[in-house]
Amino acid sequence: MADTAATADTSLAHDTAPETDGMRRRDFVNVAAVSAAGVGGLAVLYPLISQMSPSRDVLAESSTELDVSAIQPGQAIKAVFRKQPLFVRRLTPAEIAAANAVPVDSLRDPQTLAERTKEGHEDMLITMGVCTHLGCVPLGAGEGEIKGEFGGYFCPCHGSSYDTAARIRKGPAPKNLEVPDYEFTSDTKVVVG
């Protein structure tokens, strides 16, 4: 500090003199101010981005309750879950047998029928009605709709065929039809989501 003693203005000396800790006071103030503004700016950014994610009223509609007692073997219904079609299908013994006969290793998205249904309800196949290719609604759940060459669902947009366990067998779709989270609250009631 000997060479700065000659400077008459001590406050100026504070700013310009190299100090022992290697940080000038002005640099410290600068870094602190810019950091505080930066952290504050990022904190403000969070709500501005978060506001675009689903609002409370949308989330409140995000579970669906279904009564599956009226569905006959071989029949399917279309329900709505999170504003998207949901396929609920009661499989016939022949369809179950067909699904179980396929070697799992040969599948594009290997899954057994048992993995895609709930224990004790192996005949209830509940999947999203959204093709895993680009999101069209496959045919096969409605009365008289074609079911494709594997007897499950067929997407008319780009020709993906799903089998009786709604697994992808042919066409461009990468995955089986998605099985949403659901549980049986009684023998006939299902809560999806």
Binding site: P47, S50, S55, R56, V58
Partner: peptide, 13 residues
């Protein structure tokens, strides 16, 4: 009111 109650951070905005 939807903005005030449902939208994430809607009240603040």
């Amino acid at each position: 009111e939807h903005i005030m109650r449902d939208v994430n951070w809607g009240w603040m905005l």
